[in-house]
Design a protein around this nucleic acid. Structure first.
Length: 677
RNA sequence: GCCGAGGUAGCUCAGCUGGUUAGAGCGCAUGAUUCAUAAUCAUGAGGUCGGCGGUUCAAGCCCGCCUCUCGGUACCA
C-alpha cells in the first residue's frame, strides 16, 4: 500500500438545472464531508473540491423554455445549490463552477494537450442541421414521431412516451425545436476519445490493481470493460460550453462529460497556486465521491483522459454509493418526487444535523435504500433525542445540580469506572476504522454507542441515589460522565458539526482537538460548564404528516399529468391515410424470440397469406395465450429483419398511460383480411 | 437474453480467507428505575440466512439451476 502525503477529495459536480435533494446529499456530499472533516481533524493535508456542472444541452433547453439565457439558468441554480451546501455544512475548500474563466482555460488546455499528443480520433458524420437557425442540432433539439410507439413529441435521443432511447436520424418527421422547420442532414467533424485504445491499461489498473474497490464499483467497471469500449465523442455542435480550441472549430464545444470532470482540476487551480501538488504528485491520494450513475465516467472515462494527458495522477479509490429512494419511489426532479434541501430547512429550521444523521445512518452504501419520513422521525426521536441528546442533558443537568456546573474532582476509580473510561477509546477506534474504510453508517453507529455507554453508566451507578449517602462517590461518577460527554463533543464533529459545536459551547470547550478524542480526561476538574440546553427536540406526528401530504400532492399532480393524452398530430389528407393497408388477421402461432426480453415471433393469417411478424409485446403476453387472438395488422409495411427474422408487417397495439400494450382487434369476429379503414 | 449488484429477524443493515447454539440498531413484550425531552437500563420473544440440488467432516459464506429487486446493455417497426 502506497503511503500518501495528502488527500484530494472530489465530489460529483451537481448539474445546475435544478436544486439539490436528499439523494445528492446522502450519496455524495455528506459522506465526503464526514471523511474530509475527519482527516482535517487528524491534521492531514486534505482538500474537498466541488462545483456546479453548468454546460450541456438540458440547460440550454431549460433556458429556451423559460425565455432566458443559459447563463441565467446556471446563475440561478448555482446560487441555490451553493447556498444549500453551505447551510448543510458541507465544508468545501472550494465550490466552483464550470462556467468560470479558469475552467475554460483549464479545459481548453487539457483538450489541446490531448489533441497535440494525437490522443483523439477525428471523424466526420452526418448530423441534423437547422438551416434557418444556422446551427447543428443536438438530439434534444429535435422532435418527431417515435418510430416505435408512433407517438408525436419524441426527442432525438429518447421517446418520453415509451422510454426507448433513439437515434435522431430514426425519428419520423423530424422537426427542429428552434425554428420548427424540418432539419437537413449535413456533415460535421468531431473529436473522439478512443477508449478502446485504453482498454488493456484499464483492465490491469482496475481489474487487477484495484480489487479493493467496493463491489458495486468494481463489478460495474468489469461489466463495461467486458462489453468492449468504444470511442466517445468529446465535442459537439452547440453554442453553450467550452469552445473546441482548434482552428476552424466554430460552433463546436467540448461535450459536457469531457469538460465536467476537468472542473475538479479547475476548481483546485482556483483555490491554490499549488494545485499541481494535488493533481500530479503520486504521493497524493485522489478520491472521487460519486453516485452510482457516475461510476463509468470516474472509473473508466476520466482516468483514460488523465492517463492520456500524461502528467496527472489517477484516483486511488472511487467510493460510489447507490441510490436513495423516497417513500418507495425513485427520486425524480421532473416528477417533483424529492425532498429539496432548501425546502427542508424552511420546514425544519436548524435541523440540518438531523438530516445529516438520518442520511448517514441510512446511507445507500451497498444497495439502494429508502428514505421514509416515518424513519426520519423515529431516528430523530428514538436515537438523537432519546439516546444522544438525553445523555448529554442528564450529564449536564446533574453536574449543575450537584456541583453548580463545575467539573468535580474524582475520588477513587472503581473497576467499573476504569472499564468505562477505557471503553471510550474503543469506540473512538472503531469509529476511525470505519471512517477509513468509507463505512459511514457503521461509523456513526459507533458514535451512538458512546452515548449508549454514557446512559448505561449513569443507570448502573445511580448518582441521584448516592448523592444522599456518598457525595464523594458521586463526584467520581459525574467526572466520568462528563468525560464521555466531552468525548462526544469531539467525536461528533465530522458527522454532526452543528450539534458538536453547540455541545462544545455548552461545555465551554475550546477549539475542537481530535488528539484528545478517546482520552480519559478531556475536561479537567474545576472546569466550568455552561448552561444546559437541548441538543435535539422531538419531531411531532403532525410535522411528518405535513411532509407526507406534500408528497401526496406531487403524486396527485403527476397522476393528473399522466392522464392527459398525447397532443394530436398534424392533419394529414385522406390520400396519405389510405396508403396504409391495415387488415384483420389471426395469430396462428406465437413464440418468444430467444435471447430477447420483448420480442415475440408471430405467424399471422392475414386473409391474404400467412406471414411472420416480429412484435415487441413479449413483456405483456404469454405465447400460448395469444394464439387465436384476432388483431389488426399493417400489411404493406416494408419488411425488415429483426434479430435475424424477417418481419413482414406490424401488429397494431394500443398503449395506455403506464405503457401496457393491448391488442386492437375487431369487437366481433370478422373474416381475416377484412380491410380496416 | 447477456453483464453487474443485491435478496439475512416486523423495519434498516453487519456477518472476515466455509467451523461451536446466525449478530446489531430501531420496533415489540416483560421487568427495573426516575437525574433526564414518558427519555434511560435489563431481560426476552422473533430468522427453513430468496428457492431447489450439489461439493465438504462442516455452508449464510463454495459450485449448478431457478426466482425476485435495482443498474447497464442488446432488442421493440
Amino acid at each position: 500500500m502506497t503511503q500518501f502525503k495528502r488527500t484530494l477529495v472530489t465530489t460529483a459536480l451537481p448539474y445546475a438545472n435544478g436544486p439539490i435533494h436528499i439523494g445528492h446529499l446522502a450519496g455524495v456530499y455528506v459522506p465526503a464531508d464526514i471523511y474530509v472533516r475527519y482527516l482535517r481533524l487528524k491534521g492531514e493535508d486534505v482538500l474537498l473540491i466541488g462545483g456546479s456542472d453548468e454546460h450541456g444541452v438540458p440547460i440550454t433547453l431549460k433556458a429556451r423554455n423559460e425565455g432566458i439565457t443559459p447563463q441565467d439558468v446556471v446563475d440561478k441554480y448555482h446560487g441555490i445549490i451553493k447556498k444549500s451546501f453551505s447551510e448543510f455544512g458541507i465544508s468545501f475548500d472550494v465550490y466552483s463552477r464550470t462556467s468560470s474563466k479558469v475552467h475554460y482555460e483549464t479545459a481548453s488546455q487539457f483538450f489541446k494537450t490531448l489533441n497535440e499528443k494525437g490522443e483523439f480520433l477525428e471523424k466526420e458524420s452526418e448530423q441534423y442541421y437547422d438551416e434557418e437557425a444556422g446551427q447543428f442540432l443536438a438530439d434534444r433539439y429535435i422532435m418527431g414521431t417515435c418510430p416505435h410507439c408512433h407517438k408525436e413529441g419524441a426527442y432525438g435521443d429518447q421517446c418520453e412516451s415509451c422510454g426507448t432511447s433513439l437515434n435522431a436520424t430514426d425519428l419520423i418527421n423530424p422537426k427542429s425545436t428552434i425554428s420548427g422547420k424540418p432539419p437537413v442532414r449535413k456533415n460535421t467533424k468531431h473529436w473522439y476519445l478512443p477508449l478502446d485504445k485504453h482498454e488493456p491499461f484499464l483492465k490491469q489498473w482496475i481489474l487487477e490493481d484495484h480489487k479493493e474497490w467496493k463491489s458495486n464499483v468494481y463489478g460495474q467497471c468489469k461489466s463495461w470493460i467486458d462489453l468492449g469500449l468504444q470511442p466517445r465523442a468529446v465535442s459537439r455542435d452547440l453554442d453553450w460550453g467550452v469552445p473546441v480550441p482548434v482552428e476552424g472549430a466554430d460552433g463546436k464545444v467540448l461535450y459536457v462529460w469531457f469538460d465536467a470532470p476537468i472542473g475538479y482540476i479547475s476548481a483546485t487551480r482556483e483555490l491554490t497556486p499549488e494545485w499541481e501538488k494535488y493533481w500530479k504528485d503520486p504521493e497524493t491520494r485522489l478520491l472521487h465521491f460519486i453516485g452510482k450513475d457516475n461510476i463509468v465516467f470516474h472509473c473508466i472515462v476520466f482516468p483514460s483522459m488523465l492517463k492520456a494527458e500524461g502528467s496527472f495522477i489517477l484516483p486511488d479509490n472511487v467510493p460510489a454509493n447507490e441510490f436513495l429512494n423516497l417513500e418507495g419511489d425513485k427520486i425524480s426532479t421532473s416528477r417533483n418526487w424529492a425532498v429539496w434541501l432548501h425546502e427542508y430547512l424552511e420546514d425544519f429550521k436548524d435541523k440540518q444535523d438531523v438530516l445529516r444523521y438520518v442520511l448517514t445512518a441510512n446511507a445507500p452504501e451497498t444497495k439502494d435504500n429508502d428514505f421514509t419520513w416515518k424513519d426520519f422521525q423515529a431516528r430523530n426521536n428514538n436515537e438523537l433525542v432519546a439516546i444522544l441528546g438525553n445523555f448529554v442533558n442528564r450529564s449536564m443537568v446533574l453536574t449543575h445540580k450537584y456541583y453548580n456546573g463545575s467539573a468535580p474532582t474524582p475520588g477513587t476509580f472503581t473497576d467499573f469506572d476504569n472499564e468505562t473510561l477505557e471503553t471510550i477509546s474503543t469506540y473512538v477506534e472503531k469509529t476511525e476504522t470505519a471512517l477509513r474504510n468509507f463505512k459511514f453508517r457503521e461509523a456513526i453507529r459507533e458514535v451512538m454507542n458512546l452515548a449508549r455507554l454514557g446512559n448505561k453508566y449513569l443507570a448502573d451507578t445511580e448518582p441521584w441515589k448516592l448523592i444522599k449517602t456518598d457525595e464523594s462517590r458521586v463526584a467520581t461518577i459525574m467526572y466520568v460522565s462528563l468525560q464521555i460527554t466531552a468525548n462526544l463533543a469531539i467525536l461528533l464533529e465530522p458527522f454532526l458539526p452543528f450539534s458538536a459545536q453547540k455541545l462544545r459551547d455548552m461545555l465551554n470547550m475550546n477549539e475542537v482537538d481530535w488528539s484528545l478524542c478517546g482520552k480519559k480526561e478531556v475536561l479537567a476538574p474545576d472546569h466550568q460548564i455552561g448552561k444546559a440546553s437541548l441538543l435535539f427536540e422531538k419531531i411531532e406526528d403532525s410535522d411528518i404528516e405535513q411532509q407526507l401530504n406534500k408528497l401526496k400532492e406531487s403524486k396527485t399532480a403527476n397522476e393528473a399529468a399522466g392522464k392527459q393524452s398525447a397532443p394530436a398530430k398534424p392533419d394529414i389528407i385522406y390520400d396519405e391515410f389510405i396508403k396504409m393497408d391495415i387488415r384483420t388477421g389471426t395469430i396462428l402461432e406465437a413464440e418468444k424470440v430467444p435471447k430477447t426480453k420483448k420480442l415475440m415471433k408471430l405467424l399471422v393469417d392475414t386473409g391474404l397469406d400467412q406471414r411472420t411478424v416480429v412484435s415487441g409485446i413479449a413483456e405483456f403476453f404469454e405465447a400460448d395465450q395469444i394464439i387465436g387472438q384476432q388483431v389488426s395488422i399493417l400489411v404493406n409495411l416494408a419488411s425488415r429483419k429483426i434479430k435475424g427474422i424477417e418481419s413482414q408487417g406490424m401488429i397494431l397495439m394500443a398503449e395506455d398511460a403506464d405503457g401496457k400494450l393491448v391488442f386492437v382487434s375487431p369487437s366481433e369476429k370478422v373474416k381475416n383480411g377484412s380491410e380496416v379503414k
